[in-house]
Amino acid sequence: MRVWIPGSILGAWALLAMSVYLLPLSPNLIQLEHILVPPGEDALLGYDDLGRDIGERLLVGARTSFLVSFWVVGLSALIGTLIGTVSAYQGGVLDRAIVQVIDIFLAFPGILLAIALAGLLGPGIENVVMALAAVGWVGYARLSRAQVLSLKHREHVRAAEALGSRRLRIMTRHLLPLMMAPLIVEATFGVAAVVIAEAGLSFLGLGVQPPDASWGAMIRDGTRYMLVAPHMVLAPGIAIFAVVLSVNLLGDRLRDTMDKRLATAARKDQ
């Protein structure tokens, strides 16, 4: 599939998430006369069980999921890569300790740990970000540690050491750029996972609190009226589906092109 279809879906997602700040929306306005009204001329996506405009709530939900995935992926990738890189490059006791910590984190099912954390911290969007990032860094740490372990014995790293380059410079110039490809791919898949995780936490009531909207919370509210008003579930469901699918498609595509570039470079080496 071409890049531009998933690309434009993601672009629209980001754009809509940002448009919330500009548009005169009233997503929490309760209009009792519109309860469970299906999509029509009045509202493109219909109204929910309290008579709120689903279209407007979807927009606000887009902002929530966008912000959550941006922060969670950004924080976990940053922390995880830092810990993994330093741990592997330094080696020794520090590395062994960090590996133990990573193993302990991996032993828990991630979403369960996030639920426990979110429950402990109390509901709220900041706490969702923290709970998911606390679980998410492990993957990046493990990935970057493995990358550095194989990269640090490469001759160009040895050459930089022989020239007397500083550790920080070796890490930023010789290690990070070479492990970017797998990290970026991991991050794109991470976005999809976070969108789903946020929806899940909100669905359980641990994320965004009423009356604020998020896609997960909207599905949670809609399940009760699934038979009489399926549009309440369908709109956010399709939104999540489209975003996650697009991110995954783009991630696949990205991995392929990066592989290809590496393969071309390697072929020229021969």
Binding site: H156, A159, H174
Partner: peptide
């Protein structure tokens, strides 16, 4: 200074 055996892997691509 050190000059390595393999000129392919001793430079950062």
């Amino acid at each position: 200074q050190f000059i390595f055996q393999d000129p392919y892997s001793s430079m950062n691509p």
